[in-house]
């Protein structure tokens, strides 16, 4: 890739940051060139971000319909899935899955709530809030 071919498409996902890539510079040698972003990279990054947003939205619906607990919403918001949340909290997967049931979630002990809040990076009181 020549230095002039280094994409400068201003990827929204960079948040104004630049990224350094190796490319052939004008003297014919390979060197570092700053890139402002490539559309392809933006596509796949946003795809992954959106996949989690969709999961979050679907989870909110389920919580409103009483089929799931707010924990599921917070889990997806933190870009986690059940196995990651289980690993991060040190609980077994079946326990995390059980805590996704609204009735079980409502009876959750203070200690467990604190543990989830810690892992998800929020305050324990926020666990019940889904908006």
């Amino acid at each position: 890739m020549d230095a002039t071919d280094v994409p400068q498409e201003g990827s929204a996902t960079y948040g104004g940051q630049l990224k350094a890539v190796y490319a052939r510079t004008h003297d014919g040698r390979l060197g570092l060139v700053q890139s402002r972003g490539w559309e392809v990279e933006e596509t796949v990054t946003l795809q992954a971000v959106r996949a989690f947003e969709e999961l979050t939205a679907a989870a909110i619906e389920r919580v409103r319909a009483g089929q799931s607990s707010p924990l599921e919403v917070h889990m997806y918001r933190a870009r986690m899935d059940i196995s990651l949340l289980a690993q991060a909290s040190g609980l077994w997967r079946w326990r995390v899955r059980r805590h996704l049931r609204p009735t079980v979630f409502a009876r959750l002990s203070k200690a467990l709530r604190a543990r989830y809040a810690e892992v998800l990076g929020i305050e324990p009181e926020q666990l019940d809030v889904i908006n």
């Binding site: 890739m1 890539v21 190796y22 390979l30 060197g31 392809v40 796949v44 990054t45 992954a48």
Partner: peptide
């Protein structure tokens, strides 16, 4: 998309590492 993300995004990106090795 996930595989491309692994290629282009992690660090300088996978294709990027080929350029780095060329350097």
């Amino acid at each position: 998309g996930h595989l491309i993300r692994m290629q282009e995004e992690i660090g300088t990106g996978g294709g990027g590492f080929r350029f780095m090795y060329a350097a």
